[in-house]
Design a protein around this nucleic acid. Structure first.
Lengths: 187, 187
DNA sequence: CGGTGAGTGGGACAAATGTACCAAGGGGCG
DNA sequence: CGCCCCTTGGTACATTTGTCCCACTCACCG
C-alpha cells in the first residue's frame, strides 16, 4: 500500500499497476494479487491508509499546539513549518490525498473515508481557531480548511523555492489575523 | 479534447484511452492518433484547453462584477452562485482542472499552463478584493484563491445537497467580511 | 516429528491498449 | 476537369496489464 502511494505521488494514478507496485515493494507479482482482491481494492486500501495516517498526524500536531496559547503569528509559523516539512519529506502523501478526494466522487466506498478526513480537518480547525481567539470557530473552520488545502494544492501544482516563507506563511498569518480580529471589532 | 475532459471527470484520468475518447467523440480510433501524436499529447492538450477556457470564463465574471461596487455579501452571493452553477452544469471541468494541477508537478509542459491559470486566479482575486474594499488586495489574493479552490475541492470530493447555501456562501461571506474589515480597524 | 496451511515465486493467458499502416474519400486548386 | 493532399475508416500487431494457477517453502501445532 505504501508503494502504491509512492507511485501515485511520483507518476500518477495510472502508473499504479500490479507489476509496478510489486517491484517497488520488493515482492513478486502474485504478492499484490494475493493480498488484494483487485487493483481497485489495492488503490482503495492505499487511499484509506493515507487518509487515516493523515488524520492521526494532524491530531497529534493540533492537540499539541492548541493548549499553548500561541499568537496568530505563531500559529501561522507552526502550521507553515509543518506543511512545508511534509511537502519535503513525503510529497507523494498530499498528492495521494488529493487524488483520494477526486476519486471519492466516483467510488462510493471512498466517500466514507473522505468524509472522515474532512470531518477531522474541520474539527481540528475549529479547535485551533478557538485556541487562537476566534469568536466563531465553527464558522471559521471551513474557511481555514479550504484555505490550507488550497495552499497545499498550489504548492503541489507549482513547487517553488521559498514557498513557505513567501507564500504559505504570509497567507496563513493574514488569514488568521483577520479571522481573529473580529472579536476586537465587536468588543 | 472535450471528450477527454468528460472522461477525466466521469471515470478518472486512467479511463482516458484512445478508444474511449474516440467512441465518445464519435470518431474512429485512428482519429485520435491522427490528430494527437500520443495519448500523453492528447491529455496535455485537453488540460490546456480546460485551463484556457477557465481563465476566459473567470475573466468575464470578475470583470463584470468588479465595477459594480458590491457589498461583501453580494460578492459572496455572486461567486457562490457562479461556482454552484458550474458544478452543476459541467462538474467534470473542475475535476479536470485539479487533475491538471496534480499532473503539472510531473509534466514540465503543463507547468506553464498551471502557472498561467494560477496567475489569472491571483490577478482576478486581487481585482475583486480591491473592488470589495480590501486594504491590501495583493496580500488577500492568495488567501482568497486558496480558500475558493479548497471549497471547490471539498464539494467535488463530497457532493452534497445545499452546499451552496450551507457551506459555500457562509464561508465566502465570513472570509470576505473579515478580510475587508481590516480597513475599519486601522481607521 | 509429520502434516497443514498461510504465504511465496514464477509463469501463463486473455483482454485491453498504444501505435502504425493502408486503402478509400472528397474537396479545393491548378 | 483532374490531380493532390488532408482526412477518414478500418485493421493489424506488439506490448502492457489484470488475473489466475500451481509448485514450493517453512513455521507452527497436534
Amino acid at each position: 500500500m505504501r508503494a502504491t502511494l509512492e507511485l501515485i505521488g511520483e507518476r500518477g494514478a495510472d502508473a499504479v499497476t500490479h507489476r509496478a507496485v510489486a517491484e517497488r515493494a520488493g515482492v513478486p507479482l502474485s504478492g499484490t494479487t494475493y493480498w488484494f482482491e483487485s487493483k481497485d481494492a489495492l488503490l482503495q486500501e492505499a487511499f484509506v491508509l493515507a487518509a487515516r495516517e493523515e488524520v492521526e498526524r494532524l491530531e497529534r500536531v493540533v492537540l499539541e499546539l492548541a493548549p499553548r496559547e500561541l499568537t496568530v503569528g505563531e500559529w501561522a509559523d507552526a502550521i507553515a513549518a509543518t506543511l512545508a516539512h511534509q511537502s519535503e519529506t513525503e510529497p507523494e502523501r498530499h498528492v495521494a490525498l488529493f487524488e483520494l478526494g477526486l476519486e471519492s466522487a466516483r467510488r462510493p466506498a471512498l466517500r466514507a473515508e473522505a468524509e472522515r478526513l474532512l470531518g477531522a480537518h474541520l474539527r481540528l480547525a475549529a479547535l485551533g481557531a478557538r485556541a487562537a481567539g476566534s469568536d466563531d470557530p465553527e464558522a471559521d473552520a471551513p474557511v481555514i480548511v479550504a484555505a490550507i488545502s488550497g495552499l497545499i494544492f498550489a504548492q503541489l501544482a507549482l513547487p517553488r523555492q521559498g514557498f513557505e516563507r513567501d507564500v504559505l506563511r504570509p497567507a496563513l498569518e493574514r488569514l488568521f489575523e483577520r479571522l481573529t480580529s473580529g472579536a476586537a471589532i465587536r468588543a
